[in-house]
Amino acid sequence: MTGALASAGPLGAPVVAQVTAIEASLFVFVVLTALFTALARDVLAAVIIFGAYSLGMAALYTFYRAPDVAMTEAAISAGVTTVLLLLTLAKTTRLDHEAAFESVNLPAAGAAGLLFAGLMLTMGDIPAVGSADAPIWSNPDVTQWYIAETYAETHVENTVMAVLAAFRGFDTFGEAVVVFAAGIAALIVLHREVFA
């Protein structure tokens, strides 16, 4: 069961056969936390369960060999998002309620279900996880070139960082400016002139 990832089947093989045990359990965990985050009646409980959701997502990213994404998820979600949400909650009013879970809005649930079904229809055309035939992986001009040439071009070992800072440096400059603008936008929305 656990060796299925190493021997990833050809394109078009049934997806279920290649899901390993840890993948399946982490996936169940992530879906459950996402559902309970949406359904929790108390906002503080939703924030806490959302923290648990990010824990599962980081483990899943790590299992898919995306450690940079996993570390971003860890630093941002565990360190920042929960704290900022709690600070915002401290300024709000808590309504008293008995129910533990939100009542489900049926039209919204139906719309979400239709979207889910529509997305699932495309699953057959998506290459298997870890497949060597996936276009994003086998492309010799982009991904394979980055992996082969990064060290010779930039003298750093982390390809992700090389792509972010060197090959796609202008995009990263835009992203950094977006982060900067987010801080200014928070000041404007909250009618403040200084941060501290």
Binding site: T20, I22, S25, F29
Partner: peptide
């Protein structure tokens, strides 16, 4: 690791 992930649930 899969066992620990099941425990997480």
């Amino acid at each position: 690791a899969a066992g620990f992930a099941v425990l997480a649930v």
